[in-house]
């Protein structure tokens, strides 16, 4: 039905730009407030664990900030993304265009925020004297993978939120649990070795840990680990999209 083959891509682009503007324009400082959240979380945790408890983690501030920034993307992108069909109901019930485009534009908007946060992170790195080496380029791969994971999950959440409006509350609770089960605040070394396999079943834990490897220890994780992570990311995205496709046709009616 839509004309040129780039129609859907153009829509994604326009919606993403509009989405981004909408998210940040109603407050004076806009982006600044969104940045404040992870920074405050970082500040408070750093205070408690580093200054009060004196945690023996190499480069704890950098270690912590990286974890929080990546986590923030995961949590924000899924929470906002899952509501996209509800918030854009006036679009969906009036015109036909790819439903997937809406999900993509939401997660891409969140990705832009992540990239902006990464700039802050690099400034932080520079101040801490922990200069990234050439292996930092590997991080681009991890960015792609976390995008795939987030978008795959958001596809499923968004489609089921149409049916169950309170899914958001349940997801918020789950996010809390996942946050604590992922080594963001604490180093994975304090976890008894017997639990390591379970912890690393979580792709998010891998992404955060491997990213820390790259930036702080200047070390690229071995190939087998990277392959497993890549497979996880692709499977999550593919499964999420497949589930989305089974439900997408009835979205307009349920709104």
């Amino acid at each position: 039905m839509p004309k040129a083959k780039y129609h859907n891509l153009r829509i994604i682009k326009e919606l993403t730009v509009a989405e981004f503007k909408l998210r940040y324009q109603n407050s004076y400082l806009g982006y600044f407030w969104t940045l404040l959240k992870p920074l405050m979380l970082f500040g408070v945790i750093y205070l408690v664990f580093s200054v009060f408890m004196r945690y023996p983690v190499e480069n704890y501030p950098v270690y912590l900030l990286l974890g929080i920034i990546i986590w923030n993307f995961f949590s924000e992108a899924t929470l906002i993304g899952m509501n996209t069909f509800l918030t854009k109901r006036h679009l969906i019930t009036k015109i036909y265009f790819s439903r997937a485009a809406l999900v993509f534009s939401s997660t891409i908007s969140s990705m832009i925020t992540l990239l902006l946060n990464m700039i802050i992170f690099f400034v932080f790195l520079a101040i801490s004297g922990v200069w990234p080496g050439p292996e930092a380029l590997f991080f681009v791969l991890y960015l792609v993978e976390i995008y795939l994971i987030v978008t795959g999950i958001t596809f499923v959440l968004a489609v089921f939120t149409v049916r169950f409006h309170d899914l958001q509350h349940i997801w918020e609770m789950l996010l809390q649990i996942i946050f604590w089960l992922t080594p963001i605040i604490y180093p994975v070394t304090i976890v008894p070795v017997v639990y390591h396999r379970l912890i690393f079943l979580n792709p998010l834990a891998r992404i955060i840990e491997y990213s820390r490897d790259i930036f702080i220890r200047h070390h690229i994780p071995e190939l087998s680990l990277n392959v497993v992570l890549a497979i996880m990311a692709i499977v999550i995205f593919a499964a999420g999209y497949a589930i989305f496709r089974t439900q997408k046709d009835s979205i307009a009616e349920k709104l």
């Binding site: 839509p2 004309k3 040129a4 780039y6 129609h7 153009r10 829509i11 682009k13 326009e14 919606l15 509009a18 679009l91 015109i95 265009f97």
Partner: peptide
């Protein structure tokens, strides 16, 4: 621009 794009026009 948003409305126009939804209706199928390029930028």
């Amino acid at each position: 621009f948003i409305n126009g794009t939804l209706l199928g026009l390029t930028r």
